[in-house]
Amino acid sequence: MAGADVFAMDPDEVRKSVEILFEIESEVDEQASAIATSNAETAGPLKEAETALGPALEAAGEWWQGERAFGFGSLLGNTGEYLAVCAEEAVEVDDYNAGTFASVAGDLYPERANANADARPDW
C-alpha cells in the first residue's frame, strides 16, 4: 500500500482480519437477537402479571440488543470496512467514509450495506 505512514503491510493478512471482524459482527448480531427473544419471552408473562419487572426487562433486552451489542458489532464492521479499503489502497483514518469502502472494496463484499454507499444520493 502506498501511504505516507505505512511501513509494511501484507494485504492477505489484512483481508483475513477483515473476514474475522465481519464474522464476529454477524455472530454478535445473531446472538443478540436470540437473547433479546429469550428475554421478551420471559418478560411477557411478567408483564401480564403486572410486575414492574416485566416492562423493564423487555426494555433492557431491547436496549442491550439495539444499543450495546449492535454498537459493538457495528464498530467491528466499521473497522473491518476501513481495513478492507486499506488492503487495496492507502487511506487515512480521518479521510475514511462508507463511500470509500463502496468504491474500493464494495465488489469484494457485496453483501454489506455499505457496498453500495457511493450510489446513495447523499454521497
Partner: peptide, 24 residues
Amino acid sequence: RLRTEVIEGHLSAEHFESDTATQV
C-alpha cells in the same frame, strides 16, 4: 478472538506496521 486472531495475529505489526496500523 479479536485479541488473539486479529490484534496479535493477522493484524500484528509483522503484517501491518505504521502509525495508522497502531491506531487501528
